[in-house]
Nucleic acid binder design. Structure first.
Length: 544
RNA sequence: GCGCGGGUAGCUCAGUGGUAGAGCAGUUGGCUUUUAACCAAUUGGUCGAGGGUUCGACCCCCUCCCCGCGUACCA
């Protein structure tokens, strides 16, 4: 068999290609009769209201595709393909071609999904693509022969995966393309793709059938590629600073490290109740006890709480601990890390969020140094200098006059302060602010401030109106830690993780710790309005 | 949980108390450098589900399901 390319030796050609009957220049002697049978079969299909074996309610669209599949199979063509060695990814090939790294006339083997087609009669253009992008391909009857050409045109649909071999060329209009010599089906799509121009806009389809969103929406593809690369970059950044990545239990006896409702499960072998973790914190601190000076974990947490634009029950968290550091050193680290990501992926420190039409809806300026301010100072600036001298009734009145409806006098002072902070400071802070000296009731795992024990040595980093990252000087006194956990704020007093206290009693070095909500960080950097737009498969309610 | 908005062809969307519409996709025919290809013809619907009002309901009313936004919950 003559081999038209130098990319692969003929011995590596896959069987599907050889047996496909679709090969053009390399294949001789295929009979004309199978093609005629195919045409007859197709005409029969059209006249049948419901195909023999398929569901009677199936739409006509699906009948045609199933008929094509059956015909492929009847002809002994592997409609669902097999191994196909490629020389390039479609989008990467186009990019390299444009950049001049691939010359015109280069033999290539590519595979992907047929995304669109323009049938010119005796020649057809089609786009082949995947997450890397797409490249135009050109198939002409003169080159591959009438039989192969007609077979392609009549049984390959938009949505099918194909593999092909050809040479790069540039069309009259300057489009970098591949001139197809041989083509093989790799997978039949029995259902059509979404609208080629609008893609999927229905949110429910986007989230439930993310693959359709990824196939048809450029921006969705971009966001998830960026997400993946950012996470790799974060890991590299921390590895480069001698942080060791570890994995700690996601199934825990005592769900600690945060105050959130956990998901419960049951472990049959031990007949005991278990919980999906709400945070890895208490295990990472055990590793500080064990002598790891710098550790991090970047993985999922689970919280059994509401769904919203900013909340998904499983979300990705980075936690990192640095022995002998404090919260200010951790703030420096986070500031540097986020700026590093912005510069690498967003082209600079000024992030613009845009709407569908491309209008800038929000600008976030990450220029360093980032503002650092005490919690109380920010609350005073928002709610009045005398805020902390007010009694509860006066606070409620003040809060309501400032537009907060959901405040009541029966709430504790710190709760009223917290609400004012969330509504009047956090939600209005788009440029980065490290909020420091937070009331200790809110943070039982951090060290109290030496000068003012009513506050703790922590920061809460707010960007884009959301808390993106907390950082602590970690509490390492086991006696104080027990007391703080016993007296923590909140409705439910949590069960204390005795194993954690036991570990502290063996001595934990002073350390700085951080958490970064990766999903929210990516929202901020990509301009996504909903957490669902940065999580591939966000939680939705089951459909009955 | 509550409030508001939405659910119509495979996809994107119109629509009116009186026979269900368009574009794309699909099907058929034409076209060998097109690119939201083009030209011509054409198929395709449980109008989210179930009840009710009405001579007649996609439309009005009730209940339910799902999605979005807000709110509540969420150290």
């Amino acid at each position: 068999m003559p081999c038209p390319t130098s990319i692969l030796p003929c011995g590596q050609m896959d069987h599907a290609l050889d047996s496909s009957n679709l090969a053009g220049s390399c294949q001789e002697g295929a009979a004309a009769s199978p093609f005629l049978r195919w045409q007859n079969a197709r005409k029969q299909v059209k006249s049948l209201p419901a195909m023999n074996e398929t569901e009677p309610t199936e739409s006509e669209l699906l009948h045609f595709r199933r008929a094509k599949l059956e015909e492929l199979q009847k002809r002994g063509i592997a409609a669902f393909g097999g191994k196909f060695e490629v020389s390039h990814d479609p989008g990467a090939l186009r990019a390299q071609f444009i950049a001049g790294d691939v010359a015109e006339g280069t033999p290539v083997r590519i595979a992907g999904r047929v995304l669109s087609r323009r049938d010119m009669g005796k020649a057809t253009f089609f786009d082949l693509g995947d997450i890397t992008g797409r490249i135009q391909c050109y198939l002409s009857k003169g080159d591959v022969g009438e039989e192969s050409y007609d077979l392609f045109n009549q049984q390959i649909d938009i949505g099918d995966f194909v593999g092909l071999e050809g040479k790069t060329f540039v069309t009259r209009r300057g489009e970098r393309s591949v001139h197809v010599d041989r083509l093989v089906p790799l997978s039949k799509a029995l259902r059509p793709l979404p609208d080629k121009w609008h893609g999927v806009t229905d949110k429910e389809i986007k989230y439930r059938q993310r693959y359709l969103d990824l196939v048809s929406n450029d921006r969705s593809r971009e966001v998830f590629v960026i997400r993946s690369r950012m996470i790799a970059e974060i890991r590299g950044y921390l590895h480069g600073r001698n942080f060791l990545e570890v994995e700690t239990p996601m199934m825990q006896d005592v769900p600690g490290g945060a105050a959130a409702r956990p998901f419960e499960t049951h472990f049959n072998a031990l007949d005991q109740q278990m919980f999906l973790r709400i945070a890895p914190e208490l295990y990472l601190k055990r590793l500080l006890v064990g002598g790891f000076p710098r550790v991090f974990e970047l993985n999922r947490n689970f919280r059994n709480e509401g769904l919203s634009r900013r909340h998904n029950p499983e979300f990705t968290m980075l936690e990192a601990y640095w022995a002998y550091a404090d919260f200010e050193q951790m703030a420096d680290l986070v500031e540097d890390l986020i700026c590093h990501l912005a510069q690498k992926f967003c082209g600079g420190l000024v992030i613009e969020h845009k709407d569908e039409e491309g209008n800038v809806t929000r600008t976030i300026d990450l220029t360093r140094p980032w503002k650092r301010a005490p919690f109380r100072e920010l609350v005073r600036a928002a709610a009045g200098d005398d805020w902390f001298e007010l009694d509860k009734a006066a606070k409620v009145e003040r809060a309501q006059s400032l537009g907060l409806q959901e405040v009541e006098a029966r709430e504790e002072h710190y709760e009223l302060d917290q609400k004012v902070f969330e509504k009047l400071v956090e939600e209005k802070s788009f440029n980065p602010v490290f909020v420091t000296h937070v009331p200790k009731e809110l943070v039982p795992l951090a060290k109290q401030n030496a000068a003012d024990p009513s506050v703790v040595d922590v920061y809460e980093l707010v960007i884009n109106g959301q808390e993106i990252s907390p950082g602590y000087s970690e509490l390492n006194d086991p006696v104080v830690q027990r007391e703080r956990l016993e007296h923590q704020a909140g409705e439910e007093v949590q069960k204390i993780d005795e194993e954690f206290i036991l570990a502290l009693e063996h001595g934990m070095p002073p350390a700085g710790g951080i958490g970064i909500g990766i999903d929210r960080l990516i929202m901020m950097l990509t301009g996504a309005e909903s957490i669902r737009d940065v999580i591939l498969f966000p939680q939705l309610k089951r459909r009955d």
